[in-house]
Design a protein around this nucleic acid. Sequence first.
DNA 1: TAGCTTTGCTATACAAAATGTAGCAAAAAT
DNA 2: ATTTTTGCTACATTTTGTATAGCAAAGCTA
Lengths: 111, 111
Amino acid sequence: MSLPKPGKPVRGSKSGNHLMALFDLLGRSWSMGIIWRLQEGSCTFRVLQDRCESISPTTLNKRLKELTQSFLIERTVDGYTLTDKGREIFLLLKPLESWAKDWAKKFESNE
Amino acid sequence: MSLPKPGKPVRGSKSGNHLMALFDLLGRSWSMGIIWRLQEGSCTFRVLQDRCESISPTTLNKRLKELTQSFLIERTVDGYTLTDKGREIFLLLKPLESWAKDWAKKFESNE
DNA sequence: TAGCTTTGCTATACAAAATGTAGCAAAAAT
DNA sequence: ATTTTTGCTACATTTTGTATAGCAAAGCTA
């Protein structure tokens, strides 16, 4: 893979729109969840599968390949790890955590 | 909708994990792209469809409903707008833009 | 070292999500 | 009043994700 979905343009992007390519990558099922869980520490396929609770091995495998080819994670002798780039995105995603907590109130109250 | 995917737990979340609910919502096709484009300014369905270039009306409609029920966007007399919450997420997503630009280098060079 | 377990997947069949296209009813423009 | 635009919906197809079974390779275990 050169950029996610090479050849035909990435969902929602003219050629050269890297942000949309990123949205496309992160916008696949479990992408962000996997990054989040890998931040807890490098681990094997099975352990990652357990951390993700309900992911199917088929999807996990596919996502891992994509994220690896996108330089966000890499395989080592003892499993999968976030790369520097991967950790960078994690840090960008992190603020969503507390935001989400606050957002949840909207669903409870009539704020 | 109370939280995205009510009833059965959201993809990758135990009950009460709002971050995973958010990942699930943003992780659907076009979710982030729509937020991004709405930040350019409120607009009608058709204009939004044009801004997104290749989105199908079916998907756009579905996403708009979900994002509305999730308090990120709202309908006004003259179309769709980001809510305060929506603008907040946009601001959290914004840093991804320059990150993506840098990330793109990985695909060009042998860095 | 023979057998059992665990791991990292793949194969297959199925379900759910997204797409593309057509078109229709309501509102707006002419 | 007629045409055009808008905001969808219906429907058929394709793509994506799921669930389950299982297999080959590596790692214990006796």
